[in-house]
Design a protein around this nucleic acid. Structure first.
Lengths: 260, 260
DNA sequence: CGATCCGTTGACAATACTCAACACTCGTGG
DNA sequence: CCACGAGTGTTGAGTATTGTCAACGGATCG
């Protein structure tokens, strides 16, 4: 899995919006693959921001620990995601990031990111679009954590994962792998692990979610989406047309050139 | 109130990172002021994304309406904020935006935004930084809506506003104006309006929050922050040093010029 | 085999919601 | 100037949802 396979850049490529050189530059961010074990931290809250990562294999999540001992999981990162863009523009990490299962990450520096974004407005807007979409998922979670029942929260969470995993071909027969413990699911949804267990049982009794260890099967995804009041607008990976042809607007380039 | 007074750009200016021309470009986004009444929508969910706004006067908020009739308020916009950056990179609005009280906004187009961001990497990073900070506040709300009691949620909400308003000189004698109804406060915090009322009473009885109509006074802001487990890292408006001297990195400009 | 982690289930407690009644403010129109 | 109504906030009573604590069973792994 590579950044080029990220649904956003897939869409760029489908529209012929990426040059060969741009694709090469993107791949240049993935030159230092590093193996990481389950539970390995990529960084801690309050660390200095110096690097970002592309997640090649495995799952990761960002989180905040609270004084009370509770934990809130913020984002789930899947293969092809960029990790750490949330901290772009801050001096220190606002959240820690840990691997869930084992995997591979490719760290790259602030400097490298600037260079890629500066090289091409298309790449810059693609990277920003990926970051914006990650934030949109988090925003959506605020909506359902704030306003939905435990059943709807869990249903929404699972259906969102189902869609994200479908897009990277990680769903077969409506079945996918969920490497999170029920306590971790609770930390993402603002529920206790006990209540997550009960809620899974309810969804099973309603025939909406079958689960065997880490295998999750959704016999009727549409029914699940409907009970969660799921609206998929926020997962739309299509970019508005002005973004798909940015080569024209380089007034900065021209101006700087005239100055030089 | 103007975009130049936004804490992020204030910090740029303090560091001499903005040229006269850059300041002029920023002000160019504020050329079409429009008066808006209380409750006026700026746009609705699912509208086509065509414009953004700078909020000159008054308060606004973005929100999502749920099928159940409930509403979740996402962001609160104060004077000097940019509205709509959340939808940057999407074709359609993910949330509606409405004015809270009457005010003045300056709409500007996608095209204008591209031009400003393309003119200068400094301006681009400043605008991105403002958007990232807005998102950080929303993320923080997920943390406390997911994991805190009603008292802590309200305390956190009020203390965050207290800090934001302090920075735009809208707090006097620990007192500020809160033009939101208790139902709206509840819609932001995932609480019913009845419970917001009770929670205000509790905070009053503990001497942490005095309220008279829309006037809010915090007799002991530190005590309030402490009970809310408030950590102000996410409100830090300082930019990491690489952002404060971006004039050096314009390889894209040079390359494009050579090509031309 | 023993230890640990994870999930399940039961009993009970706490937090927050709903419904309802009422008070207060403010603007509008008689 | 008063009456009315809409909107907002307060308080009480009862309910619902979710959390906490605890005990137990099954899986995994050394």
């Amino acid at each position: 899995m590579t950044l080029l396979k990220n649904p956003v850049f897939q869409q760029f490529r489908k529209n012929g919006a990426l040059t060969a050189e741009e694709e090469k530059r993107l791949l240049g961010l993935e030159q230092k693959p590093r193996r990481v074990d389950a539970s390995d931290p990529l960084w801690h809250e309050n660390d200095t921001v110096d690097a970002f990562c592309i997640l090649k294999q495995g799952w990761a999540y960002s989180f905040r620990n609270l004084d009370s001992g509770a934990k809130q999981i913020l984002k789930l990162y899947l293969p092809g995601d960029i990790i750490g863009m949330r901290d772009f523009g801050f001096s220190h990490r606002l959240a820690g990031v840990e691997m869930i299962d084992e995997g591979v990450v490719c760290p790259f520096s602030h400097q490298q990111l600037f260079e890629v974004m500066d090289y091409s407005a298309t790449l810059a807007s693609g990277i920003v679009a990926i970051a914006v979409r990650q934030q949109a998922m988090l925003t959506e979670r605020l909506v359902y954590v704030g306003r939905h029942t435990a059943q709807q929260r869990l249903a929404h969470f699972l259906y969102e994962l189902y869609l994200r995993l479908s897009r990277i071909e990680a769903v077969k027969d409506n079945t996918f792998s969920l490497p999170l413990s029920q306590e971790q699911v609770g930390d993402a949804l603002g529920l206790s692990s006990v209540h997550v267990s009960r809620t899974f049982s309810m969804l099973r009794d309603e025939g909406l979610v079958l689960r065997d260890r880490q295998r999750i099967q959704l016999p009727d995804p549409m029914a699940l989406a409907s009970m969660a009041e799921f609206s998929d607008a926020y997962l739309d990976e299509s970019m508005p047309s002005p973004f798909l042809d940015l080569h024209g607007i380089s007034s900065r380039a021209l101006r700087d050139a005239q100055k030089a």
